[in-house]
């Protein structure tokens, strides 16, 4: 054919098939990646101020377990998670709050009054009154809420909770 670019019919068909195939593959394939990884990209981190109770009711220097629940919608299902924190009252306007989640493998620790330690039932981890590691496998002290993450309003202690 005059003025042709010397591409045979056969090569033209091959090339067109490859090009159209790539376009179709991309039209399905690229959105598919977004579709599959979408839940991981959803911004979590909803936050809320959780009332833990009137500060005056807590006994100074003695950890008290406070539990609360938070509901969360995962896809099409609502789940309710429960959380526990230890409140250690320091003064009439100040407190330290510790998560009861062991930093080793996330079991829940208990306060043993007679040993003055938090003990994890799973691997015998021991934490001191303020969450410091006393023994066992934990890599770091118990997670703590203090300063900005706590507030006292009209005598009630609030915890600033951010969903993980």
């Amino acid at each position: 054919m005059a003025g042709s670019h010397h591409i045979s019919r056969r090569d033209f068909v091959k090339l067109t098939t490859a090009a159209l195939g790539s376009i179709m593959g991309a039209v399905i394939g690229l959105p598919a990646i977004g579709y599959l990884i979408d839940p991981a990209l959803k911004a979590s981190g909803k936050d809320a101020w959780i009332p833990l109770g009137p500060l005056e009711k807590f006994e100074a220097g003695k950890p008290a377990l406070v539990t609360f629940t938070r509901s969360k919608i995962n896809g099409w299902e609502k789940t309710v998670n429960s959380y526990g924190v230890f409140v250690i009252k320091k003064s009439d306007s100040e407190a330290l709050v510790l998560s009861n989640k062991c930093t080793h493998l996330s079991c829940r620790v208990n306060w043993l009054e007679e040993r003055q330690e938090y003990i994890c039932p799973c691997h015998d981890a021991a934490f001191g009154l303020n969450g410091e590691v006393l023994g066992g496998p934990p890599p770091r002290p118990l997670d703590r809420y203090e300063g900005e993450q706590l507030k006292v309003e009209e005598g009630t202690l609030y915890l600033h909770f951010v969903e993980g």
């Binding site: 959105p31 598919a32 977004g34 579709y35 979408d38 839940p39 990209l41 896809g75 099409w76 299902e77």
Partner: peptide, 24 residues
Amino acid sequence: TPSPDHAYDSITYIMNGVAFGWLM
């Protein structure tokens, strides 16, 4: 999810909650 409790909700989620779910 093929259960009467969740089938409809899971499809609503595919259509409105997941990126490109409407396309798939």
